[in-house]
Write a protein that binds this DNA or RNA. Sequence first.
RNA 1: GUGAGUGUAGCUCAAUGGCAGAGCACCUGACUGUGGAUCAGGGGGUUGAGGGUUCGAAACCCUCCACUCACCCCA
Length: 418
Amino acid sequence: MTVQAVKGTRDILPDEARRWQRVEEMARRQFRRYGFREIRTPIFESTELFARGIGEATDIVSKEMYTFTDRGERSLTLRPENTAPVVRAAIEHHLFQRVDCERLYYIGPMFRYERPQKGRMRQFSQIGVEAFGSDAPALDAEVMEMSMVFLEGLGISAATLAVNSVGCKECRGVYREKLREALAGRVGELCVDCQRRYRENPLRILDCKVGCRRLLAHAPTLLDTLDAPCREHFEQVRGTLDLLQVPYQLDPHLVRGLDYYMRTTFEVLGASLGAQDALLGGGRYDGLVEELGGPAVPGFGFACGLDRLVLSLPEPSGPSREVPDVFVAALGDAAWERALLLVRDLRRRDLWVEWEPARGKALKSQARKADRLGARHTLFLGDEELRRGFWTLKTMEGGSQREIPSADLEGLVKELVG
RNA sequence: GUGAGUGUAGCUCAAUGGCAGAGCACCUGACUGUGGAUCAGGGGGUUGAGGGUUCGAAACCCUCCACUCACCCCA
């Protein structure tokens, strides 16, 4: 067996790469309107950054990281997400000295060691945004609104926005105990996983797919337990979403898997994605910058899975692929040399030009190649054309031919683009 | 990490223990200065790998590998 792409990675071939380009262009265009500017950070970082930023006990840090030791005995990790690296970069380069809100976005590959599945690869791409410097509820709503506009711009209309508040550290501590109380007598009825969750992180039981959450039907929700400032914040977030006329679903069970989230959390779910249906997810992380050694700067952001986004894209309505403007076919040595120059000149006029670099190929095989490439036109150049000073231009669809004076490059270009 | 399903030509798939095939794609010719349609021909395979059962294995058994979906978790 020859070498193939390693498990959980894949090649994006040219036809599909065009779809990726469209997504990235749309993101850059939309995010710019909201004042976000691109930042590019390294693909690997010190392991410590993720351990401290994401949380030691999370699934990502405890079992999903690509961690290795380099020749200088440093422990490094391929980034499993990019919020912590962006915060690290912003601290390192003093981006928080600006009085206004610094807004950044990134596009690039992330790495997590998981079993591959539909919409989930070990190397996957995210496009994400981070807005720093404000804890105002309207910022949360503004960024969520932007994410929906972005998806709509790509023609993804079936997406639903789910919103929740997980409160601050204090709220969660109180709630954790309430959940334990509510389940105290019925731990045995939980599934194996949830019995473990009961001990380690009872909030995760809310996310159980097997149905354990039914035992919590009458238990208080996290929302009911929010303290006054968190409750007020969340009400204003929802109020602003209403003002912006952004439809959303309140999902009290929405719990994020990274430790740094607080207060607002949200996800956008796509249709027709199978089990991995979160197109995009994020929330507020007011303590993170400080945790990583920076000033007390609040933040709000999200990350969007590009692989899943591309899977969700509607079928393009236009032609499925781009085709050359013209194929230049030459017969004979003298014509071949003239053709070489013509190919160069047409390319300098910004046309997509194909030809047959091997001298002396039968005209028939050149015409066949033009057809296979899907060229819109073929330009024939032989002894006859050289002697009388013209080109034979054939329109492939329909097959009509006509003669164009070879001195008139402008006229030829007009014919080819028209 | 757990479970299930699937591995045969470049692609999609047949062949149920008895000669490894079809369609599409590709190449050549019919057609010496012109593509597509048609017709004729051609190249292509360690049947994922290794072992076992059998007179005989693509098929049955074992091990491994890969892919797919799901669990877990997440984008």
